[in-house]
Write a protein that binds this DNA or RNA. Structure first.
Length: 635
DNA sequence: TTAGGGTTAG
């Protein structure tokens, strides 16, 4: 069989490509030794005087009567799955040559696939990427899509060394059908995504564009969704723009995913823009779109966020989209977290007016809101109301209540609720344990805390990094820094990773102990392990330096913080103002106070207390007359 | 293939 025109086109640069291929080790299977990594020569086309000619061509294989008999015999063995007989047959025939013969004889692609997989597994043969591409092309031509999917899934799962670029390269060598290659790459991208190899899926998306292959919206949506879950919103924006450039029309789901991604990182204006985009493309926002945007404003909005969330809700109603339970849950939770439980209760009433039934999550949000502000009787009452309406509290309901009692320092009452959980046929979650463990630690009852940690192990609930953080913080409060360090090592030995909170706790403890230098070492360590220090980290360290009177070091940290694109917040100013006041530098403190106000930061109760205690009592009148109203905050 | 609730650090 002569090479096709595309093969000729391709193989005009075969020598160069083969050289590259050998260097890049392009295989789909499992090499068992370095020897297996050598390129098999069955695929090599040799240059002769006439031009290009396959080494294993029709002349050399299929024109001999023996070969035809051989291939029919082998095909039959594969069809019957007589593998031991085929193994005997292969003592005289190279397995890869047989594969080529199967391709050239136009055998049923499903049979070729069967042989391909068997020879990979049983004979430990690593078929080249090009041959694998050829198999996929044959399967695509036969529209054997489920088989392709399952093959690609296994390939991606087992393949640990083939780069995305090598796969594309090989595919361009093995098939000249844009249509088949598009289908193959579309499925390959999905396989990467399903195997949690999002970065490879993203690369496949980009390369598909370079190669002019068309991807489906469905697969692009999966990519967008995976990127959102990994928090890679810049990549989400790239894919979204590129989809439009490549004329892959985004559908409602694509828009919803993109809006969600943007909302999750607080890019609310961009999210609104995307909503306008979709309208201009005649894709009308649905209840999910509105819920996503409302939730974005609730969770990531700044000043007046609930006003904006409510405005989006009203717009939704005007556009004739009916809110569902989730819409109300989002608003209720938003108002509760905005310290406005009464507004949340109004939404709860509106929900009923509009005929939307409250669910467990609705009650949980309200109960949690009430608990956060110490309204335990109302919270418990709502739990009873919930049960009366036929809804069964779940572990989240209990966690909210337990947390409420713990915050009110009623730990024994919280423990009673904890015991109720099992009676109700529910199981405490790791969060239930963490909440109680933290409460014990805060009361200094370390023995009870550790006993609870042990009992969770007995019940098969694995402690997570938060469990350790609560205990580490407990030990630090007792001044037991060594114990805290040991427990941190224990955390690591148990296969967990210290997180931002762990570092903040340890840094705080070291600062409190006067060991600011050691604390800064931990800050450096954070960068090394790829953790980004937060406001809490910097503020804690600055507080440590200020307590030691080292204002220069504290101000340097503020500079470093700003370099890291962290704008000083209210706590930063409170820490610095307190530091300057304690050093008697009241004018500097006052300058900081004004700077804070100029930046639009509204001083809180702590600021007020510092100013009153440190400045006014020393006879210094802060230059903030017009702002005193703000400073007293609640006045 | 898209949207909601509970824990830890200043």
């Amino acid at each position: 069989m002569a090479p096709t025109s595309s093969q000729v086109r391709f193989f005009s640069s075969i020598n160069h490509r083969l050289h590259l291929q050998k260097r890049a080790v392009l295989f789909w299977g499992f090499p068992s030794s370095s020897k297996d990594l050598e390129i098999p020569n069955e695929n090599i086309f040799l240059r002769n005087k006439e031009g290009l000619r396959p080494f294993c061509s029709a002349d050399s294989i299929l024109c001999s009567a023996d070969s035809i008999q051989d291939i029919s015999f082998a095909t039959e063995l594969i069809r019957m799955q007589h593998w031991s007989k085929l193994k005997t047959h292969l003592k005289t025939t190279n397995p890869t040559t047989l594969l080529l013969q199967l391709f050239n004889s136009d055998a049923d692609p499903v049979l070729i696939l069967r042989y391909f997989c068997w020879s990979t597994k049983e004979l430990r043969i690593s078929h080249s990427l090009v041959l694998t591409g050829r198999l996929l092309d044959a399967l695509a031509a036969a529209k054997e899509y489920p088989k392709m999917r399952s093959f690609l899934h296994k390939f991606v799962k087992n393949e640990s060394f083939s780069s995305v670029s090598s796969v594309f390269h090989a595919l361009s060598m093995s098939s000249d059908s844009l249509c088949h290659n598009s289908i193959i790459i579309d499925m390959l991208m999905l396989a990467y995504l399903k195997n949690m190899k999002t970065h490879m899926g993203f690369e496949a998306f980009k390369r598909a564009g370079d190669y002019g292959l068309k991807l489906s919206v469905l697969s692009c949506n999966q990519l967008l969704s995976a990127l959102v879950k990994e928090g890679k919103v810049e990549d989400v924006e790239y894919v979204y723009k590129d989809m439009r450039r490549r004329r892959i029309e985004p559908n409602l789901i694509s828009f919803n995913i993109v809006i969600n991604g943007l909302c999750k990182v607080g890019k609310l204006n961009k999210a609104s823009d995307v909503m306008e985009d979709m309208k201009s493309m005649a894709v009308l926002p649905n209840v999910v779109t509105y819920n996503t945007l409302i939730d974005g404003y609730c969770k990531k909005g700044r000043i007046g966020k609930m006003y904006k969330a409510d405005a989006v809700f009203r717009e939704m109603l005007e556009n004739g989209i009916f809110p569902n339970e989730m819409t109300f849950n989002i608003l209720i939770d938003g108002f509760c977290k905005d310290e406005n439980v009464s507004a949340a209760m109004k939404v709860f009433e509106e929900m009923e007016t509009r005929g939307v039934k409250a669910g467990v999550i609705t009650y949980n949000s309200l109960i949690n809101g009430l608990c956060r502000y110490g309204k335990l009787d109302e919270a418990t009452g709502l739990r009873d109301e919930m049960m009366a309406s036929g809804l069964k509290p779940n572990v989240v309901t209990y966690n909210a209540l337990i947390n409420g009692f713990c915050k009110k320092k009623m730990v024994d009452k919280a423990r009673e609720l904890f015991n109720d959980i099992a009676e109700q046929g529910l199981s405490p979650s790791v969060i239930t344990y963490n909440t109680l463990i933290d409460a014990y630690c805060k009361e200094g009852r370390m023995e009870d805390a550790f006993a609870l940690r042990n009992s969770m192990l007995d019940r098969g609930v694995l402690p997570d990094v938060s469990t350790y953080n609560c205990l580490i913080a407990g030990l630090c409060r007792k001044g037991n820094i060594k114990g805290a360090r040991d427990l941190t090592n224990d955390l690591i030995n148990n296969g967990l990773t210290a997180d931002l909170v762990t570092y903040n706790i340890l840094i705080g403890a070291l600062c409190k102990d006067g060991q600011s230098k050691m604390a800064v070492r931990l800050l450096d360590e954070m960068f090394k392990v790829g953790l980004s220090p937060s406001h809490v980290t910097y503020n804690t360290l600055m507080d440590g330096y200020c307590s030691k009177g080292n204002l220069v070091a504290a101000l340097n940290l503020r500079k470093q913080m700003e370099k890291e694109k962290k704008r000083p917040n209210i706590v930063t100013y409170n820490v610095l103002i307190k530091g300057f006041c304690q050093k008697g530098k009241l004018k500097d403190a006052n300058m900081l106070l004004n700077e804070m106000l100029e930046k639009g930061l509204i001083p809180n109760q702590t600021t007020y207390l510092i100013v009153r205690a440190e400045m006014m009592e020393k006879g210094f009148v802060p230059d903030i007359e017009g702002h005193m109203y703000n400073i007293s905050g609640s006045s």
